[in-house]
């Protein structure tokens, strides 16, 4: 069917996906960090730490964090770029961006800029950033290929893209456990803690619909990146893709 896309396991009109995703994140924004900690048993902090270590960001660099949510990556990037650098925390969702702003203020982090934007149309000049990151956000983007092309355009030569995202595990045992956890526990916890089972059902479903490691690597290369490699974390439940523009 043309002009349709997936929203979790449902097929929806392409034009509707953005507002459906927005509704999900409007609903979960207030409990986002708490739910991440609970659902991943705190592992999301390690995955993000690994992403920062892989970023190669240095003093004076310009960094854009797309779908930056509550600002976990932006906080660490801010420390790395120093006062001479620039970090922009962006999200398509105003509620998430507000949570990010509150979080940074509460943690005493200043000097990060906030922009509400759609990853498919990045309002920046060509060759602006040294690093662009998107953590647990790409699977919610309607046109991922367009977003990757936009990231390539705004990266400087020598710049890199970091995509931290749920992915596919090769281990049959882990897959069984993970499927059980995703479709039986996550929704229930979403209902108990965030009073929103439906949004966490979408979370579990959207992970399964997201391209696997090799497919995403192909998409990054198709977007003109010169190099792309990925590293599996937690047995492939999460993968970090790094795309390089030469």
């Amino acid at each position: 069917m043309e002009n349709t896309t997936h929203f979790g396991f449902k097929q929806v009109a392409t034009n509707d996906k953005q507002s459906l995703v927005r509704d999900v994140f409007n609903s979960v924004a207030g409990k986002y960090d708490l739910m991440n900690d609970v659902l991943s048993f705190g592992a999301h902090r390690l995955w993000k730490r690994y992403t920062i270590a892989s970023s190669n960001v240095k003093d004076g660099d310009k960094v854009l964090d797309i779908a930056g949510g509550t600002g976990d990556l932006a906080i660490e990037f801010r420390k790395k770029v120093g006062d001479s650098g620039q970090v922009i925390l962006s999200d398509i969702n105003a509620a998430m961006l507000n949570e990010g702003r509150k979080n940074l203020i509460n943690k005493g982090v200043f000097g990060v800029e906030f922009i509400q934007l759609n990853a498919e149309y990045l309002p920046f000049d060509n060759s602006t950033f040294d690093c662009v990151s998107i953590a647990f956000g790409l699977r919610n983007v309607t046109d991922k290929d367009q977003a990757l092309k936009e990231v390539y355009r705004i990266l400087k030569p020598g710049g890199c893209l970091l995509i931290l995202e749920f992915s596919t595990t090769d281990s049959a045992l882990l897959k069984k456990l993970y499927d059980f956890y995703s479709f039986n526990i996550i929704q229930k916890l979403g209902g108990i803690i965030a009073d929103d089972e439906a949004s966490y059902q979408y979370l579990a479903e959207s992970i399964r619909k997201h391209p696997d490691q090799e497919t995403l690597k192909g998409m990054v290369l198709d977007a003109s990146f010169d190099f792309c490699e990925y590293h599996n974390l937690s047995g492939g439940i999460v993968a970090l893709h790094k795309g390089i523009k030469v």
């Binding site: 190669n56 400087k156 490699e229 390089i244 030469v246």
Partner: peptide, 11 residues
């Protein structure tokens, strides 16, 4: 991989 005064070490 050397690009624009940066080095990337890839596997």
């Amino acid at each position: 991989v050397c690009a624009n005064e940066r080095i990337f070490v890839l596997s």
